[in-house]
């Protein structure tokens, strides 16, 4: 928040916000001060619908270690899925 440095990913999918399911078009990711998680810094991920309002958001604030485990879990899931559905890791850069 204090740095205004945000990484982004284009998304195609859905997420469940406080108001229910919404389409997701983008993820905004930063390492900065969280709004809720009780830590001084966190990996903050906002899954948003750019075509919606400010409340069309699924917000996540997790520790750096949690984020590393999440990245590993996503990659592992894609590897597992590749066994049945072809190469799901194509284009993934380390």
């Amino acid at each position: 928040m204090c740095t205004w440095i945000v990484q982004t990913a284009e998304l195609n999918g859905s997420g469940k916000s406080a108001e229910g399911w919404i389409p997701l078009t983008k993820a905004n990711v930063c390492y900065d001060h969280p709004a809720h998680a009780f830590m001084e810094h966190s990996v903050n991920i906002d899954f948003v619908n750019e075509n919606g309002g400010t409340g069309d958001r699924v917000a996540v604030e997790i520790s750096a270690e949690s984020a590393r485990q999440l990245v590993s879990a996503i990659v592992a899931a894609l590897e597992e899925g590749s066994k049945e559905h072809g190469d799901l890791l194509a284009g993934l850069h380390a």
């Binding site: 205004w4 945000v6 905004n28 930063c30 709004a35 309002g53 400010t54 958001r57």
Partner: peptide, 19 residues
């Protein structure tokens, strides 16, 4: 100018827009 709603939602939109 960046929307209404809860402060953390509005702040997230501002953060994404670079302040």
């Amino acid at each position: 100018r960046d929307g209404s709603g809860s402060p953390d939602d509005v702040a997230a939109a501002v953060r994404a827009a670079g302040g």
